[in-house]
Design a protein around this nucleic acid. Structure first.
Lengths: 335, 335
DNA sequence: CTGAAAGCGCTTACAG
DNA sequence: CTGAAAGCGCTTACAG
């Protein structure tokens, strides 16, 4: 590949001059500019971003470490992040933690080594040593998106609050006559995992219901754990009459299990999920879900991060989620 | 951030020595090694990957440019690519073309600027000038995955052949009494778009059926186009009695449209899709689909690329897809 | 308006 | 076994 020296030689100028025209420095005469541009075209020259970044100490790249790319919520989030980042002149490099803290740290480390300008993180669990150090040293501007880590002050959080929607869901189930409500929870190490079970329990309490231990399935936000938890519920002497899965993948797992056992939803058991996805209107039955403003989250997160990177102050933003009632808990599906 | 000089100073050695212990060069005495390692730990030193890559002319990174991340097929492919790449010691940077040639080229350019060691590409359409040049110059080892570009010789292709499965599908529909078969095709500029409609037409011909122009919906592999094509079919004087969507997103769009108009699947119209996804068993009705060995594709593609990067010869690989009959075309759903 | 020089943070022959 | 030196490909004060 041609280097800046080749271009300089061809245009009969110095490398400094080539650099200037490429960076649109004003002080270049029109015709040297033309000669340089011609040489660039002839040699099909592409500046080496590594060298440039090494010199300027910025990469115009942000990292996005997501808990699980196979989860449509994160896929959509990643997509929104990419779009907004591109609009602001950044590229994004995605790392997939697959819900494993180890893998998350691997990606964070790789991204730091690459000297990304900023990091968007949806932590797979609590704060690893690497993460604490990153925050403490301020080695890279950081913004949490969706999930966050309490106690790491000064890190903006962009997320959706699902509490009100979960309360709506519980009331919805209650209104439809369900009384034995169970939850397939996310990992307690995640904020979303805790928030969702907390809101669920609180809403139950408001209605005078409790959440017995057997009605708490411990999931990890992935499909298999939904399957296992659902199986556990069904083997109880008194199985629940409604199950709330704390994300869409665990709902998929639960649905698999229900069908495998020949149960009808919602007749035999109701099912609802956190996170709405395009397929939910088409499942049998259509699944009641809590929808997050996913694209807005992605965009807001990028803007907050860009603010930090570029020296402005960034603030946290909390949007809200909303209940989309379909048929999987009974009734609905008018529209 | 600490640099190699800081570490060297702290350990009382030269930068060269620090470099040697970090790269596990054998010729380092045990105790200098220990001193260096201690300094590294104390300073929480992380080598600058940019500088290293600039010097060594390799990034240990491969690029993956995918036609549409929101398509579960590509998400799963990306995931498999990441896993295999990590196993081989590479990281991967993903670019999402969103089915737009312009955006695809933007990502390819960005990746080239970053001096990735190799590129995995599922082209959004024909060969852009940038792509032709990349191949011609051999500026970066390239492997096509899923889709490819005919005429660019010497570029290995890792893909699944869907022809036999499509033939199986057409026979399946025929056996169930369907005679007016329509297709929502992908872009003619893509190999998969062409292959799928070609195989469909050929299978029809074998049964003495033709594929009239009105029964060809021109889609772009995204949901909206599925919706529009389905609407077009339904407004025909003689609508089809079966629709084959050339990917899962267009099937989603078609399903949306059918339901919006109150049509029953499969009673009023049969539906089948290319690409199987985890939700298909749970839709109403469960959707008959053609499943690709997606993970194997991703892994094989990475291996082929690594072969090229590391100077071995890489060959193309063609796996095959298979029909998974469910209820959306009538009957099935035993299992 | 333009060039020579220094330097970003590494690695790697070359000496010793 | 270890260090000094050169160089990867850029950018950017500093002179002129």
């Amino acid at each position: 590949m041609a280097s800046i020296k080749d271009v300089a030689a061809r245009a009969g100028v110095s490398a400094a001059t080539v650099s200037r025209v490429l960076n649109e420095h004003p002080a270049v005469s029109p015709d040297t500019r033309a000669r340089v541009l011609a040489a660039v075209a002839e040699l099909e020259y592409r500046p080496n971003a590594l060298a440039r970044s090494l010199r300027t100490a910025q990469t115009r790249t942000i990292g996005l470490v997501v808990s699980d790319v196979l989860n449509p919520f994160f896929t959509e989030l990643a997509r929104a992040v990419e779009d907004e980042a591109r609009a602001l002149g950044y590229s994004v490099v995605i790392g997939n933690a697959d819900e494993q803290p180890r893998l998350q740290d691997h990606h964070i480390a790789t991204l730091l080594d690459r000297r990304i300008d900023g990091l968007l993180l949806s932590p797979a669990d609590g704060a690893s040593p690497l993460l604490r150090e990153t925050v403490r040293e301020g080695s890279v501007p950081l913004v949490f998106v969706d999930r966050w880590i309490p106690g790491l002050d000064g890190v903006p959080v962009v997320r959706a609050d699902g509490c009100a929607a979960i309360r709506d869901l519980v009331r919805h189930l209650h209104a439809l006559g369900r009384r034995r409500l169970a939850i397939i929870a996310g990992p307690a190490a995640t904020t979303t995992g805790r928030e969702r079970i907390g809101a669920f329990r609180a809403a139950l309490a408001e209605l005078g219901l409790t959440l017995p231990q057997e009605y708490i399935g411990q999931g990890d936000f992935q499909a298999d754990s939904g399957r296992r938890s659902a199986a556990g519920f069904l083997e109880l002497p008194e199985p629940p009459d409604a199950v709330f899965a704390a994300d869409n993948l665990m709902a998929l797992g639960a649905l698999d299990e229900f069908r495998g056992r020949g149960l009808r939803v919602p007749e035999d058991i109701a099912l609802a999920a956190f996170d709405d996805i395009p397929w939910f209107p088409h499942t049998a039955p259509p699944i009641t879900a809590i929808a997050q403003p996913t694209r807005e989250l992605g965009r807001a997160a990028v803007r907050a991060l860009a603010d930090r990177i570029e020296g402005r102050t960034a603030s946290s933003v909390t949007l809200s989620a909303r209940l989309v009632a379909r048929r999987s808990c009974g009734e609905p599906e008018r529209t």
